[in-house]
């Protein structure tokens, strides 16, 4: 039969998988709050998959409270995996999809001894989509590039947010927040012609304006991760 109302095709997506490691709700809430404040745009409306494989002794109430918490924080838990049968009815009630288990064991990318770990499982590399802006980014504006680099050919005012899965380039003054490598790519860098940023972050490691040395202020710099440390380097000093 020839279908005229829809086209159905398979497509691949990359979702963060939240591997639950403890049923202690307080700690979970606290740590999630910290994570979301470090990369707010990454988590806003983010579709999430909850992984119960590593969790011992869970309950229907636990699932409900976790989902409720995530939803009120603006996240979108849309599926589960590794759930015991006892939770099946609740999963159905919460309209969560049941997704397949992980096929090969993978080392968790936990930075500290967290009670949860978040990792992305790319099933295929998504197409790169770079975003360009040529007008001044105003205070209160938030620009995102979730599949590539973000380049601003103008200045970004104090109170603005630039968020990218890739690199961030500002051909002007960077006065707001710059959050690069939001998907976890630690090789990402931030470049600007005049550093006056309130906060810079690469793959979750961040530094406040207060902690940036004065000799970099209002200078053309690049910022990158060396191990777990953020490095700020004058562009004039690049070998």
């Amino acid at each position: 039969m020839e279908y005229k109302t829809t086209n159905i095709k398979a497509d691949k997506f990359t979702f963060p998988v939240v591997e639950l490691l403890t049923t202690e709700l307080e700690s979970f809430f606290n740590e999630m709050d910290i994570r979301t404040s470090q990369a707010p745009a990454f988590f806003l409306n983010a579709p999430l998959v909850l992984d119960f494989t590593k969790l011992e002794g869970n309950s229907v109430t636990f699932l409900e409270l976790v989902v409720d918490y995530l939803r009120t924080r603006g996240m979108n838990p849309l599926g589960v995996r590794g759930c015991p049968l006892t939770l099946a009815e609740k999963v159905d009630e919460l309209k969560l999809a049941v997704l397949p288990e992980e096929r090969k064991p993978r080392k968790p990318v936990a930075r500290k001894d967290d009670s949860i770990s978040i990792k992305t499982i790319p099933s295929e590399v998504p197409a790169v989509h770079n975003v360009f802006h040529t007008r001044t980014v105003r205070s209160g504006q938030k620009l995102t590039a979730m599949d590539g680099d973000l380049t601003v050919v103008a200045s970004a005012g104090a109170g603005s947010e630039l968020i990218a899965a890739g690199n961030i380039h500002v051909y002007g003054a960077l006065r707001g927040r710059a959050i690069a490598g939001v998907g976890g790519d630690k090789s990402c860098r931030i470049f600007c012609q005049k550093l006056d940023a309130e906060l810079v972050s690469i793959a979750g490691t961040y530094r406040l304006s207060d902690d940036i040395d004065d000799r970099f202020r209002r200078q053309p710099v690049q910022i990158f991760l060396e191990g777990e440390q953020l490095q700020v380097q004058l562009l004039s000093e690049t070998p």
């Binding site: 980014v137 105003r138 205070s139 504006q141 104090a158 109170g159």
Partner: peptide, 10 residues
């Protein structure tokens, strides 16, 4: 100036 920048954004 900060508030004017915000208004310009709006």
């Amino acid at each position: 100036v900060r508030d004017s920048d915000r208004i310009l954004g709006m």
